Simulated assay, not measured.
Amino acid sequence: MSLSDRRLKILEAIIKDYITTAEAVGSRTISKKYDLGVSAATIRNEMADLEEMGYLVQPHTSAGRIPSEKGYKLYVDSLMTHSNLNQFEQDIVRKCIVNNVGQMKNLIEETLKLLSTLTNYTAVAITPQGKQSKIKHLQLVQMDINSVLLIVVLDNGTVKNTNINMNVEISKDKLEVISKVLNDKLVGKVIDEIDDKFVGYIKSEMISYSNMLDSVFKGLFSSVVEVDDFEILLSGATNILNFPEFNDVIKARAFLNMLEQKETIVDILNAKGIQKDNVNIIIGTQSSCEIAKDCSIITATYSMNGTTIGKLGIIGPTRMDYSKVYTSIDYVGKMLNDIFNKSK
């Protein structure tokens, strides 16, 4: 059996109706709501064929049909229409991004809130890989004679603050000397390049400050060098509870627990799906996570100078509004890429 134009139109109508209603779709519903030019009996026969071909499933003997994972994949790959955000939506995306340029974490957090609001699903991001970032500025601020605040600004906009307990008393003048030398030596340095050998070189240049530098570098390593390469940010985690597919308490709890597992989220966002330009669409069992097999994930990457520095994702039930989510995350991803690469 082949997929004729009529079968494709019927499948598309069923998917659109099921996305909207979350109820199994019957032939009479399609006949009444969609002008396909054929009778309900003909639609019923075509639906039976689509089920036999694996594009539809019948959850109950007397019920209508719902799309299968295979049906969703065909829809996303060939039938989904690509719309545009309306002018109001485009304006709020642009305002959100422009207002937060220069503060990477704030920018991504606000962008996730916006995506969650636009789509009504859960928005998630892998933040920039900090170890590939460069130190833009470093400052030591004296809190008291034995305590110093270390402030490190990275070129991706991230700011790290660490309190350091010094093992010796330190004056403001000495602190200024150390700050100046460290800025001279470290600004422009990639974090991954700051190793024991490099630290030893700096200490050899400042032998009289060696004890103080031990404490400063300990604070630097704990706040920047030894941290994880990425961070997971979330917005709208409980939005999934608004969908009937996750009304079951056990299922909902399992989904929320999944969102707390950092490595799992990274694996889900990095799964291979249907690629459309900068957008990747992962449907159901394309994900390796058991809980995520009832979900779809749509992701977009953002880059700086040709290097991918992070990824945005929208997670929802497989019955998600693919066209709306695709349009939203594609637009946001392009805006982020434009901003990052214009500013460099």
Rank of each mutant, 00 (worst) to 15 (best):
Y55D: 02
V266C: 09
L213F: 06
T117M: 09
L259H: 01
Y121H: 04
S222F: 04
K180R: 13
S83D: 11
D196W: 10
M104R: 05
R28A: 15
L50P: 03
R28T: 15
N280A: 10
M47G: 06
G313T: 04
V249W: 10
N84L: 13
I164G: 00
N86H: 12
V190N: 08
L107I: 07
I97E: 03
M304A: 13
L114V: 00
V187K: 13
I339N: 06
K174G: 09
L175I: 07
S31Q: 13
V199D: 05
K203G: 03
Q103Y: 15
Q275P: 07
K334I: 08
C295D: 00
E260P: 05
G313I: 01
I315C: 01
P244G: 05
K95D: 14
L269G: 04
V25C: 02
I291C: 05
D184S: 13
D77L: 11
G333S: 06
H60S: 11
M47Y: 08
A125N: 00
K32C: 10
D248S: 09
D294W: 06
K272W: 01
T20P: 00
K189L: 14
D49W: 09
K16E: 14
F340R: 02
V227Q: 13
V141C: 05
F221C: 09
I298S: 03
P244F: 02
T117V: 08
N270H: 14
N84D: 12
P67T: 04
T301A: 12
D229P: 07
F221G: 06
